[in-house]
Design a protein around this nucleic acid. Structure first.
Lengths: 191, 191
DNA sequence: CGCGACGTTGATTTGCCTCAACGATTGTGG
DNA sequence: CCACAATCGTTGAGGCAAATCAACGTCGCG
């Protein structure tokens, strides 16, 4: 099966036995997505937590002014979901779209809750994962306040060159929180 | 003792028995802070995770341009720490300062790790707390991208009127990511 | 081939910053 | 308790970063 990547990803956070890894993984079902297909659309409920085996997704929200604001991209070896909608069964403010043909491992809310019950070590696993996530979001917020758009752009392409190379400038602009016309001017300005 | 508030806070996330609550709480030591006293200074290591029993703190970072950027305020019933520095024992980019005479309940890293071991349900507790934290940070990032400074200001004072009323305009500006001169102009512009 | 999304470029506008001056408020030491 | 200093809040002039709007070339795809 294609659980190898997921197992490695888990082991980066917490060392688990082969049996534990297997118990976790067997709750995930593989699903393929064609380019431009949606895992989640704004206004519906997020039914799955996903792990990217192959491909790339963008997680974004459409605001009142009609701008698509990208929270993050998820390439191979990343997790993705609307955590709020998934856990609380509220309608989601987010959409998740495949940027290329992709494969995900998906776990339903029900299976995840059952997994927390049956294998308590997963609580620790996700405690650690969420903890790391918090750090990233705090750092990103500070960057957005302290850095100019140009500084944020170069920080992004240097930190995630493999993801950046798959994206259009419009998508990158949506992540940086700027208009794509301005990104074009940044790129021209030098380097 | 003054563990009541902490116990209530925990129970909002996860219903625990009296015995479990007691096991958790006894790891926390109370400490008082005078106004302007620091729990953590940028460049040192965050030794404690804290829960605010009384008073108010600001968690901020000083960037290269000399601007104090406030990540969040923590009033009564809030948690605070540099989660990155606390867990990974790295030097912190953050400072934490009491905005008024305050009281905290503090737990050391060692005691927290031991607590995770001895009472595994705390993994679930913090998994849930961190999960909620993630949602807040994601929402805040979107607000920062979609909203103007004026919209962010009114959102803040309406969402947290009790905290906002304790703060100077300079502190609020540091949270919104704008200069306090501009906040003054926002307030004058209407309402 | 032709359409629609993407990227570029320029002109103009706007949101917010910078700097500087000054009154109001708070804090502090004598 | 007062006097003075320090910090805070306000205001104005000017500047820069980024948005907006519009036009146009390019590319990929059906």
């Amino acid at each position: 099966m294609s659980y190898d990547l997921l197992e490695q990803n888990i082991n980066k956070n917490l060392n688990l036995s082969k049996a534990e890894l297997n118990t976790i993984c067997k709750n995930f079902k593989e699903k393929s997505f064609r380019k431009k297909e949606f895992l989640l659309t704004q206004g519906s409920i997020c039914k799955f937590e996903g792990f990217v085996v192959e491909g790339c997704f963008r997680v974004f929200t459409l605001d009142k002014k009609g701008n698509e604001n990208t929270l993050y991209f998820a390439a191979k070896d990343w997790w993705l979901m609307d955590i709020d909608s998934f856990m609380n069964r509220t309608t989601s403010d987010l959409s998740i779209e495949a940027l290329e043909d992709s494969r995900l491992l998906l776990i339903s809310r029900q299976d995840k809750m059952a997994l927390y019950e049956s294998l308590p070590i997963t609580e620790k696993l996700f405690r650690i994962m969420f903890q790391k996530g918090l750090v990233s979001w705090q750092r990103r917020l500070v960057r957005n306040h302290c850095f100019t758009a140009k500084e944020r752009y170069f920080h992004f392409i240097q930190s995630y060159p493999d993801i950046a190379s798959k994206l259009t400038d419009k998508q990158i602009a949506g992540y940086l929180g700027i208009r794509h016309e301005f990104l074009s001017k940044i790129k021209k300005s030098e380097k």
